[in-house]
């Protein structure tokens, strides 16, 4: 009969279920998919993120002098699916758990992240390249005796030539 008293006391001790959100910060899980952010040092400009972006939020445009490219993410078109972070080969683009996106209409086009990412020159032929991130290079060349510092500064075709030369030297020194 007095079961309800038990429930009552429990509820009083438990406190309200409502979060005190506007007065206190809301609880956000660490892996919450909020706005994306780019680490411009790791970006190689392959464009897979803008290719898989379902909301068409990412734009990569090379500048006129071909010295670099403009990388823009517009949060107002991002559907927070996380495809870009999944497909990014260098994990340059990641999601933060920042969901404070509400803004007034005047700021509509300011809700974007913009980076200008400059190209480097290939040590072999001078073609514009982006540096292969060292952590990726150590994984790719884990089982081959190459100087990673040198090979990451080459463009893909020069890297191919370097590999062929290395293989040729190996074959000559050990003909069997």
């Amino acid at each position: 009969m007095f079961k309800f008293l038990k429930v009552l006391v429990k509820n009083i001790l438990q406190g309200p279920a409502t979060e005190a959100f506007p007065l206190q910060p809301a609880k956000t899980p660490d892996r919450f998919r909020g706005r994306v952010t780019l680490n411009p040092d790791l970006c190689v400009g392959c464009g897979i993120c803008s290719h898989v972006c379902s909301g068409d939020a990412i734009r990569i445009i090379p500048n006129e002098e071909k010295t670099g490219y403009h990388y823009t993410v517009w949060y107002n078109s991002c559907c927070l699916c996380g495809s870009c972070t999944y497909y990014c080969p260098t994990k340059a683009i990641t999601m933060t758990n920042n969901w404070h996106n509400s803004h007034k209409q005047d700021d509509k086009f300011k809700m974007a992240e913009h980076h200008f990412i400059p190209y480097l020159k290939c040590d072999g032929c001078g073609a514009p390249i982006r540096l292969l991130p060292p952590h990726l290079a150590t994984r790719i060349y884990a089982h081959s005796p190459v100087d990673i510092e040198k090979i990451i500064r080459l463009c893909p075709s020069c890297r191919q030539i370097a590999t062929a030369e290395r293989q040729g030297e190996l074959n000559e020194s050990n003909p069997e």
Binding site: P22, G55, C78, L80, W99, N101, S102, H103
Partner: peptide, 23 residues
């Protein structure tokens, strides 16, 4: 329509909607 406040998200979090409503 003349829009005043935008709450982006797909869908936005309830707390984000509340922020928008407060704005």
């Amino acid at each position: 329509l003349p829009v005043d406040v935008n709450v982006p998200g797909c869908p936005p979090r309830p707390q984000a909607i509340m922020e928008g409503i407060l704005l």
